[in-house]
Every structure is written in structure tokens, then in C-alpha cells.
């Protein structure tokens, strides 16, 4: 797959696969192209070549809202909450699609079970939440859309280690509940602990790929790409 912004291609010859029911990791330093890749999947950037298949069907070139309708849901980098709306309203907007709205009550309760903190903050404006709470809300909001594939872009960004741990715990629970996950991170340790397959992105190309176990043993890769 090839993709980019305007006339510039940022991603070249990407081949990446996320197995149904698995957690896949996407690692890479600043500016490697992780966000670009994720935005391409969601239909927010221009895909200039290749194919993106979801459950066997091509989705490249589709409008973002149609991709959402298929159950491919993104938690964008930097949370991108609706800061002036309440926590509850943010969650409600997560289930904006007709299909998701039907199961609104049940999903809402499920999300509050994943993140009990959100229950306490229900009426608060999203912009006033702490960083960790905001990330919880962003994931919760995505869960409201009843994803089949949940894509997270640097969920650990700017958070304290303890919070990061609890967020990754929830991701595991979500995955255990049957939802496929793709998580992009600079924080390699956390991903290697959580994901099964991992791809390493470097200057818009896949530099390496393999299981977490393989990568965890390959110290050269860790040193040169992941800064561990």
C-alpha cells in the first residue's frame, strides 16, 4: 500500500496484516508514518496505490463514515475528544451510527465497567479531564461504536506508567471480549508485552516484522529501531 498527503507519498510498499481476534503492534520512532498508516486505514488520507482489505473486502477510497460503518474504529493520536461536551455526550457520539445506537444502553454499561472512572465523571466536560481519563474516554468512545477492529494511535502518549499499565490491561480485556486490535506505539516495551505480531515502521517502510517473542529477542533491532 502507498499513501501520503497532497502530492507527497509518506508510506511506501506497506504490507501489514492483522489477524482476526489478535492484537497486532505497530512500532516506530517519531515521524515513521504510524499515524499516516492508521489514517489511511480510516479513510482520512489519500491512498495512492495498493489495497486495504477488511474481512476480505477492499476499503481503500471509501468515505471515513462508511469505513466506520464496517466496524473499523480508530482512537486517534492525541485523543481528539470533543472538549466542550460532557463525558456522556462524547460516549453517545461514539455510537452515532444507527447500528451502534440500538445497543447504546448495553455498550454504555460495558464501557463504564471497563473504565469505572468515567462513571464518576459522566457529566463533566471532556476538556477538564486528566490525561489518563481523557485516554480512557477516547477508548470508551471508540468502544461505543461497537468495533470489530479497534485501532489505537499511541494510547500511552504523555501518560504515567501506572495509567499506561491499566490502559493496556483494559485493551487485553477488550481483546478477550473478541475485538481485534491494532495498536501503534513508540513505547515498544508495552506493545511487545501485549501484542502477538509486531511490525516495525521506519521512514514509511516496514523495516521488520515478526512475533513479539522474536522481536523481544532480537537486540539489534531493539537497539537500532526501538531505542530500548
Amino acid at each position: 500500500m502507498v499513501a501520503g498527503y497532497g502530492p507527497v507519498d509518506v508510506l511506501h510498499d506497506i504490507t501489514l496484516e492483522v489477524k482476526d481476534g489478535a492484537i497486532a503492534g505497530l512500532l516506530g520512532p517519531n515521524g515513521a508514518g504510524k499515524s499516516t498508516l492508521i489514517k489511511s486505514i480510516s479513510g482520512l488520507t489519500r491512498v495512492t496505490g495498493g489495497q486495504i482489505l477488511f474481512e476480505g473486502k477492499p476499503i481503500q477510497g471509501m468515505a471515513p463514515e462508511d469505513i466506520v460503518a464496517l466496524g473499523v474504529i480508530q482512537v486517534p493520536q492525541g485523543r481528539m475528544l470533543f472538549p466542550e461536551l460532557s463525558v456522556e455526550d462524547n460516549l453517545e457520539l461514539g455510537s452515532y451510527r444507527q447500528a451502534a445506537r440500538k445497543a447504546y444502553r448495553a455498550t454504555f454499561e460495558l464501557v463504564e465497567e471497563y473504565f469505572p472512572r468515567l462513571r464518576e465523571r459522566r457529566q463533566q466536560r471532556a476538556g477538564l479531564l486528566s490525561g489518563g481519563e481523557q485516554q480512557m474516554l477516547a477508548i470508551g468512545r471508540a468502544m461505543m461504536a461497537q468495533p470489530r477492529l479497534l485501532i489505537l494511535d499511541e494510547p500511552s502518549l504523555g501518560l504515567a506508567p501506572l495509567i499506561i499499565d491499566s490502559i493496556f490491561d483494559v485493551l487485553k480485556r477488550i481483546n478477550a471480549d473478541g475485538i481485534t486490535i491494532l495498536v501503534a506505539e513508540q513505547n515498544a516495551m508495552k506493545v511487545l508485552q501485549t501484542a502477538e505480531n509486531v511490525y516495525v515502521l521506519e521512514n514509511g517502510r516496514i523495516a521488520h516484522s515478526g512475533t513479539s517473542a522474536q522481536l523481544a529477542q532480537d537486540t539489534t533491532i531493539q537497539r537500532s529501531y526501538l531505542g530500548i
Binding site: S42, P64, E65, L81, R141
Partner: peptide, 9 residues
């Protein structure tokens, strides 16, 4: 863009 990601047209 976040709104787009919610499936809002």
C-alpha cells in the same frame, strides 16, 4: 476529523 471518525457525515 474526530467527528468523521465517529461516523458522522
Amino acid at each position: 476529523s474526530a467527528a468523521q471518525l465517529m461516523g458522522i457525515r
